[in-house]
Amino acid sequence: MVGEPILVMLVEDNVDHAELVIRTLEEHKIANKVRHFLDGQSALDYLFHRGEFSVPAANPRPHVILLDLRLPRVDGIDVLKAIKETDSTKTIPVVVLTTSEAEKDVARAYYNHANSYLVKPVGFEEFKKLMDDLGFYWLGWNTNPEIKE
């Protein structure tokens, strides 16, 4: 595994939030690469090698997916469902990263097999801490399944 680039997929419609996530992850050298998608449709296209992402080699499977829930076009929950209902993608850990604290969203996320549910903290230090921990946990401590396509 050493030497293999660690890819994080970020599905986030808010460009500012995406910038915050990417900047924090990069600063802490947690992930080699973050691929950002503004909406659910393009994220799914990437995962399922559709359209512009049809060459698997150029579009490797992410180690972990950071998924916002409120997305344009295909909603976050629908993205989650699609990932978890497809054999080739269901083993990828999906961490829901959203501003919503609503119980309904938490329940729906876990019901659809989300691996974790995190609420974006309001506050710079808290945000950095969360990203640190998240990186360490999912990309360090956590043993991920073999990547097989």
């Binding site: 808010n14 500012d16 939030h17 915050l20 900047r23 409120r70 959203t98 501003t99 919503s100 604290e101 609503a102 309904k104 974006k120 903290p121 309001v122 506050g123 710079f124 230090e125 945000f127 950095k128």
Partner: peptide
């Protein structure tokens, strides 16, 4: 309530986050 809590929180996350980076 749901959407307000989500959508109003969203700019706050941005503001606080970038305030940190501003420093």
């Amino acid at each position: 309530t749901y959407t307000v809590s989500h959508d109003l929180r969203s700019p706050l996350v941005t503001i606080r986050g970038f305030l940190g980076y501003l420093r």
